[in-house]
Amino acid sequence: MSASHKIIGGVVDTVESVVLGKRPQIRLALACLLARGHLLIEDVPGMGKTTLAQALARVLGLSYSRVQFTSDLLPADIIGVSVFDRERSAFEFHPGPIFSQLVLADEINRTTPKTQSALLEAMSEGQVSVDGETRLLPQPFFVIATQNPSTQYGTFPLPESQLDRFLMRIDLGYPDPESERRLLSGANPRTQLPKLTAGVSAAQLSAIQTEVEDVQVSDALVGYVQRLVQHTRELPDLEYGVSPRGALALLQGARAWALMDGRQYVIPEDVQAVFAPIIGHRLHSYASGEPVGAVVQQVLNSVDIL
């Protein structure tokens, strides 16, 4: 049991005290952040997406800002604007909410593609360019975006190329009856959020992220991952398979998952655990509108670990 393992366990427990009965999702979300990936939470309104994001921000001790995406939101509203300061006779940059360590982009698919891409650029580059000047974003930099299912009214679905920027996409789902009873009988989780304290320092978080990079991946496991992605490319139900970037993401997520399990090496179960959230949104089924979940499970069942 390494120190990082203990820290992560504490973080998960703390978050779960607010987001009840969602341990697997919390673990996935944490794995995503530890693997330096951005997270997309997709579900219908009221499932606790925002609560989860806020709880994570507080527990990880990160500076946090939230942007509510609406259809009239402009890129400057996220990135910031330069305002003319009359006293100094110069433009002064007023940073937008993106200059935080953890940005919660709420209902990202309700805004126009132009604004979406401003955020997504920042996500992939880790920097923004305003008035010809490149400004670095704080480190670590996470985006947790939530989106409503694309079938709902007033949504601009994210194109595949932008979905690809998110390491994982998870959905929360309804709580189980037991958790829901606890939720209803207890206090409103939102009110408990301010009471959460940081369970990890910035330095620790950075160390854990470095540790994730060092988790060992054997040849046998690389072979397994390669066969998995190869299989997605040969499935007739899918329009296209997983890209090499997707395969790298899969490996990275599996590393984080292994570390959270207290292991210094990745085993196939790690890959299987993160496979659906990492691969699901990168695949496109021919039968549009049909969930690819069944296909993803089919891939896992058809590729042997040996």
């Binding site: 085993i267 069942n301 058809s302 042997d304 670990i305």
Partner: peptide
């Protein structure tokens, strides 16, 4: 062993 199942499981 189920198809595709890992060792640990």
């Amino acid at each position: 062993r189920r198809s595709g199942e890992g060792l640990r499981s």
